[in-house]
Amino acid sequence: MDIENLKTDLKERLTEARYEHTLRVTDTAINLAETFHGPVEKAKIAALFHDYCKYDSLEEMKKIIETNSKLPNLLLSFHHELWHGPVASVQIEERYTVTDQEIKDAIFFHTTGRANMTMLDKIIFLADYIEPGRSFPGLDEVRAAAKTDLTKACYQAARNTVHFLMEKNRTVYPDSFHAYNDLNQQVFGGIINE
């Protein structure tokens, strides 16, 4: 894959701020992959593509979700902010012939997470959350954990996200709950009764 051509395409598709975010996510993903002995090249590609469809029209994304059998129609029942990752996961195959399922899954689930996340899923999910341009409550704790424990940092990010959505009385996509529960079990080793 020609990374420079992809960056040129991204510059045209994204706002300047979103393009800069994408570069920071990519740098963070590479760093996480190197730290935790993950797939560095796959992390770079998935990170570059993670917001590829961020500014596609809602009508276009809706049509793709409705007509592509690889995408669950359930997405349409939730906030459109969740659509761009799944849509990008199918668009990059059509436009760039990216067929690596691990890369496509990491892009698909980068906003919600999911149960049984792969290392690449975790890297992209976390890189998007902790990239240096972000600033919100609870972020420092996640960044600190990300230096030594990828799964714990992902758990903290999932917990914070679910909590934030519940505090705002927003619906929570099922994969986000599944990610939280699965990561909780990985970190704490099972059911905790206190």
Rank of each mutant, 00 (worst) to 15 (best):
A146I: 08
G138W: 10
H80I: 07
D175V: 14
F78S: 05
N116F: 02
D105L: 10
F109H: 00
P137T: 12
T112Y: 06
S89Y: 01
K54R: 12
A144N: 15
Q91F: 00
L150I: 08
L58D: 08
Y96G: 04
A146T: 13
F177K: 08
N193I: 13
N73T: 15
M1H: 08
G189N: 03
F125A: 06
I103M: 11
L71S: 00
M61N: 02
E131F: 01
A29P: 01
D51N: 01
T8D: 14
D100L: 08
E60P: 09
L75D: 01
L14I: 11
R159C: 00
V40E: 06
T151D: 09
F125T: 08
Q156S: 05
N184T: 12
G133Y: 07
K152M: 02
K54M: 15
E167P: 07
Y180C: 04
A127H: 14
Q185K: 09
H110V: 02
E12D: 09
R95C: 03
D27C: 01
V25R: 05
A46Q: 13
T35K: 15
S77T: 15
N160W: 00
A146D: 09
Y129F: 15
K44D: 02
L6I: 11
S57M: 00
A144D: 13
G189P: 04
G133E: 10
T118R: 00
V172L: 12
R18N: 07
L150F: 11
T67L: 15
H178R: 12
I92S: 08
D27F: 04
I192V: 13
A46W: 05
K63S: 08
V172G: 12
M119K: 08
N169G: 09
T161R: 06
I45P: 01
G190A: 10
L120T: 04
K104E: 03
D27R: 11
T171L: 06
R159W: 04
G85I: 06
I107Y: 07
M61S: 08
K11T: 09
V162N: 02
E81H: 08
L126F: 05
Y55Q: 14
Q101W: 11
P86C: 03
K54I: 07
L139I: 13
E41Q: 06
E34K: 15
E59G: 08
E141T: 13
Q186G: 12
M166C: 04
D27V: 12
R159V: 00
D128A: 11
K168E: 13
N31V: 10
K62D: 06
Y180K: 14
S176P: 11
E102S: 10
E20G: 09
Y52N: 02
F109E: 11
E93N: 13
D2H: 05
N31R: 14
T67N: 14
Q101G: 09
D2E: 11
I192H: 06
V142A: 01
E167T: 12
L75A: 00
P137M: 05
Y129H: 09
R13A: 07
A179G: 06
Y52G: 03
A46Y: 03
I130G: 13
T26A: 14
Y129R: 07
N181A: 13
C154W: 02
T67D: 13
L14T: 08
F188W: 14
T99I: 04
T35Y: 08
Y155D: 10
L139M: 15
L183V: 06
I192W: 05
K168M: 07
P132W: 02
H84M: 04
A46N: 03
H178C: 05
D27K: 04
V90C: 03
Y180H: 11
H80V: 09
F109G: 02
R170E: 12
